[in-house]
Amino acid sequence: MCHVEVSNRNVVYRLDLHKRITLVRGNSGTGKTALYEMMNDYTDFPTDSGINVSGDKPCAALSYWYWEHQLRRLHDCVVFLGEPQYYMELEELAEAMLRTDNYYVLYTRENLPVFPEDDVEVCEMKANGREHWLTAVSSERK
């Protein structure tokens, strides 16, 4: 298991990741995009962003255009992938992810059979005020 916390003045995310691939789904308005945007800012400007990241592993957001370059440099990290799911169709990205030792947090409502079932946990983002956390919903992909 891997635990990470991401916070700024408005929100705090306490995430327990039980498997290498966490697919985050759930209702709109629960803060999924806000977390990815925070991680994106933190990845670009770790200090200047003012975003606090702590936990068992370093964290980074993967960008659409430079994922290949990024993945070559990210080891034993928690890597966040954004919601524009079209790049999840890229089989080469999935294969590259599986070759690494990173944990991945993906926002997608699609089924991604390219990942082995044993490596995947499907979660929902829950929120209560500024507190956010993940709850496992099912081991099923659908």
Binding site: G26, S28, G29, T33, E83, Q85, T108, R109, E110
Partner: peptide
């Protein structure tokens, strides 16, 4: 509608 959860 990929951004839309069931509450949408």
């Amino acid at each position: 509608a990929s951004y839309c959860g069931n509450n949408c």
